[in-house]
Design a binder for these strands. Structure first.
Length: 486
RNA sequence: CGGGGUGUAGCGCAAUCUGGCAGCGCACGUGCUUUGGGAGCACGAGGUUGCGGGUUCGAAUCCCGCCACCCCGACCA
């Protein structure tokens, strides 16, 4: 199955979601495979989407008092191994440099899978007094995790991300920082990418190796599977103890600081594709769309072309001053020598929110035909007033994308009480299932083996509700979120 | 790691069984005609048939070895 009409097509979302995803990523020119297995080449259109969410998150990070820094790509083996749970969790995924400068290295160098270890070691001299705290740092970098099964953007051996690392004098302060990080992710996901998320705590089995606890935001893709979209970790004093970081507190006692770390990666580009896309390709929220409006000129004769060009030129002059929620309006007029139909498909595949068709009939009427990508709704609009209306129209569109995702999630979330009902629901309908759980790893494992679903998180906003665990019937305090996940 | 499959132009494939000029569609270049939902015609460019070895007058095709990738399982999260 494929989209209608002649010309190249993409795999139908309904028939084969992974096939659809791959086609969209490749055909919309977001990314390519690389000569290195599991690694990806991010192309200009894909990188522009990443830059938009990166820049927005960076604003949140700086607004909340963090400074950007840089630490090395290489982590000495001895440092990576200091925190026992950490090294055990990452060991199979670490890539090593064993040879350099023409000889075997005395000490292997890990290519960072994450930077907790090297940062803890590096900052121990910076932290002497409670006056040196909190230390709030953030890195934008690349990391390598040697994944066996990779998918463009979603899980690649090398990926781009941001990792915040902070140190605090008290546990309460560190706990508040974990919330700060997660709130930044919620804001970027929901307000910028129009992806509604469930915030919650990870189960013991799913938390970050070396963390005391982990929080995450979880999003629903359009195949109803879950995607972890950002994590924020309470590291407690684990890494501080491993690296022997101590500070002298107000009470003249030497103490280990409490740490946090939180990360958000290029996986979110994949989330944006899968949370909004449809049979025609990408559907991008205006805030991240590299182009928010595309203008398609239509003409037959040279005489018509001149008239259309004049009208568009006049319109473009007014567009130059338009400011949207994500900065100056980003638009493009497509003058390529292709048919209008070709261009419609081309820009729909790329998810451009608004398309303005301008032909001879329109010019005669002083209007254009504005078409919304999300529902192909067509509307004649006067060219003279369009520029002034665009910020509002784009804001409305952004909200419509979010609302549609919210409705989709609601329609695919069920509250169930038994393992049989959960299995039936996961296998037949997919989606999210809210079910009571006693808290034991054994019952968590039992659900996973029976259904393939995992506990995505223990949601913060799930109401306290006494019940019985869906596996062993023991008392449960609240419902947790089960789903099959990427 | 086990089982199965596939490697031929940028992409998708045919030719392999039965050895005999390496082809088709899309994409790409030029020209003309076109342009309100993926335009048409003509001409053109593009190849170490995954790599190495063997058999043969002759190998994409047969034989041996290697490599890569995909699917299923296992493992991991």
């Amino acid at each position: 199955m494929s989209t209608t009409g002649p010309g190249p097509t993409i795999t139908s979302q309904a028939d084969d979601f992974p096939g659809w995803y791959n086609d969209v990523v490749r055909r919309a020119e977001l990314a390519d495979y690389s000569p290195v297995r599991g690694c990806m080449i991010i192309r200009p259109y894909g990188y522009a989407i990443w830059e938009s969410m990166r820049d927005e998150l960076d604003r949140h990070i700086k607004r909340t008092g963090h400074s950007n820094v840089y630490f090395p790509l290489f982590v000495p083996k001895s440092l990576l191994e200091k925190e026992a749970e950490h090294v055990e969790g990452f060991d199979p995924q670490v890539a090593w440099v064993t040879r350099a400068g023409g000889k075997e290295l005395d000490e292997w160098l890990a290519i960072r899978p994450t930077s907790e270890a090297i940062i803890a070691d590096s900052v121990k001299d910076w932290i002497q007094s409670y006056r040196d705290l909190p230390l709030l740092m953030n890195l934008w970098n690349n990391v390598v995790r040697w994944e066996l099964r990779t998918r463009l953007f979603l899980r690649t051996a090398e990926f781009l991300w941001q990792e915040a690392h902070t140190f605090h004098a008290t546990e309460a302060e560190a706990a508040a920082e974990v919330d700060t990080g997660l709130e930044a992710y919620r804001a970027v996901a929901e307000d910028w990418l129009a992806i509604p998320v469930v915030q919650g705590r990870k189960s013991e089995g799913e938390k970050f190796p070396g963390a005391v606890y982990s929080h995450s935001i979880e999003a629903m893709m359009r195949d109803t599977k879950a995607l972890q979209a950002g994590t924020s970790h309470m590291l407690g004093q684990n890494f501080a103890k491993a690296a022997d970081i101590r500070f002298l507190d107000r009470d003249n006692e030497r103490k280990h600081p409490w740490g946090t770390s939180w990360g958000f990666s290029t996986r979110m580009v994949g989330a944006t594709i899968m949370a909004h896309g449809d049979e025609a390709g990408l559907v991008l929220p205006p805030n991240v769309a590299p182009f928010q409006v595309v203008i398609v000129p239509i003409f037959r004769s040279e005489e018509d072309r001149v008239k259309v060009a004049a009208a568009i030129e006049q319109l473009e002059a007014s567009l130059a001053d338009v400011v949207t929620a994500s900065g100056p309006l980003r638009w493009k007029t497509d003058w390529r020598e292709e048919t209008p139909g070709f261009k419609y498909n081309h820009w729909e595949l790329r998810g451009v929110p608004l398309r303005l068709e301008v032909g001879p009939r329109d010019v005669a009427a002083g209007q254009g035909v504005l078409v919304r990508r999300i529902d192909r709704h067509k509307e004649p609009v006067p060219l003279a007033s369009l520029a002034a209306e665009l910020p509002e129209r784009l804001a409305t569109y952004q909200q419509a994308v979010f609302q549609r995702a919210l409705d989709f999630r609601a329609a695919n979330t069920r509250s169930l009480d038994t393992l049989d009902a959960l299995r039936e629901s996961i296998e037949v309908e997919g989606g999210f299932v809210m079910a009571p759980w006693c808290g034991s790893p054994e019952c968590e494992q039992a659900v996973n083996e029976a259904t393939g679903a995992t506990i995505r998180c223990i949601p913060f906003d799930s109401p306290d509700e006494a019940g019985r665990c869906l596996v062993d019937g023991r008392p449960s305090e609240r419902r947790v979120l089960f789903a099959r996940a990427y």
